[in-house]
Design a protein around this nucleic acid. Sequence first.
RNA 1: GCCGCGUUCGUCUAGGGGUCUAGGACGCUGCCCUUUCACGGCGGUAACACGGGUUCAAAUCCCGUACGCGGUACCA
Length: 488
Amino acid sequence: MRVRFAPSPTGYLHIGGLRTALYNYLLAKRHGGVFVLRVEDTDQTRFVADAEQDILDSLSWAGLSFEEGPGVGGAFGPYRQSERSARYKEVAEELVRLGKAYFAFDSSEEIEAMKGRHTTAENPTPRYDFNTRLEMVNSLTLSEADVKARLDRGDEFVVRLLVEPGQVVSFQDAVRGNVSFDSQAVDDQVLVKSDGLPTYHLANIVDDHDMQITHVIRGEEWLSSTPKHILLYNALGWSAPQMAHLPLILSPTGGKLSKRNAEKQGIPVSVQQYIQHGYEPGALLNFLALLGWNPGNDQEIMDLEEMASVFSLDRVGQAGVQFDLQKLSWFNEQYLRAKNTKDIAESVLPLVKDRFGDYSLGHVEGAVKLMIERMTFEKDILDAPYLFEAPTAYDEKSVQKRWKTDSSDLLTAFSSEFESLSSWDAASIEGCLKAKVERDALGLGSIMFPVRLSLTGEPSGPDLFGMMELLGKNEVLARMQKAANELR
RNA sequence: GCCGCGUUCGUCUAGGGGUCUAGGACGCUGCCCUUUCACGGCGGUAACACGGGUUCAAAUCCCGUACGCGGUACCA
């Protein structure tokens, strides 16, 4: 089994593209096959210089490694279509020779004019097809000599697929079953553009054939051009690979997850944006895998290996799926909590230093341990500034509501109690505090709240005693005293 | 318009004729845990698009309608 992910470097890798790559990867791993990356850069007008690098970087971040492709090589290279022009030309010529394709010399104005002539309410988008090709300037309407003369003269031309009406083109799709089209509805697709480069359709089938791709897994937007591909395979006497068209990822409101549409709803579209937001690659992959596929049981948290061990195309859904950012967040939380706190600390250390100054890895790890249950992203550690610096203000509402007349005195009293503590750890602090509460017959809340507020400035937060241990005795006493004075 | 694909809780889905008074997850929500908040645990909320068939029996099969999505480029 050989599969490929064939992105076009016309922009940064899209989240939907990553899912397509993932499904290809999973299928290959599941069957011990080969995963190929092929860059489909046949459109010079839409070429984006750093897009290929972005695709490479994004796949690498996600951990989707390929056995063959640009940079790593392979027996079927080159893997950039711009470097395979000669082969497409050869195949195009072969198709013309076989009478399956023809030269066309029409200018875009002439094509527009033809479309204008045929446009009606019932036929808003006329095609260049069996119905109209005989009114056009092509090797079907021109004499052989004329065609040769134009070619020799260097006139611009395109090569078009000759689609005969009256045939039914059908194929088995691995996720949709039998799909069939009437060839009448297929136009004489351009195979070679006037710049000499192939269109997607030609390059795609040539490469899939030459690279011995066995399974084509791509988005549903390709479903309606598949008959063209089947016709091409047939014309060349090649057998078509197994097709599998994935349901599209839709926006939460149902429409297409276009860049504009998505951004309006706060959904990142490029993988690069997910990286910047701090998503865990495993979480994103896990989420994406389940967007259109399921393992057939209730398991949701699965790493790449686990998914690869059970992946199959027949468990891929057929209906479009809506993107749910909240569920992605949940996945990210799950993955974050499964991570080693030291690793997280190491990764956020620069952020902490940048924001709060020079803290030790140990201190940051302690902060992470306190905060992990309430973080969605690693960077959320910054939402607890009080683990690094004294609060500069106290939450007004809480002060008004819960800061009692004796709170300051209590703070002072407990301060001196803590002062005498010989070992400063969460358990000792807790024991000390609770002992005094009992001795003085106080309510636990009457002291817990003032302490928390003095330490964090906020009415809620992570475990109080753990936090006190992390901050250290001096810092805790200083903050308590400060609040006692300021809020008196 | 035409062609294609699709349609189970708000969302992702299980389900492939009887075991479905339709299961799981996210979300929302109640209770419990608890020094707060969060986490967690235990509950709750909520769906077979509609209409015809076929069948003893349909969420499951067939047809139609509606709706959604995709395509209709010398873009991929």
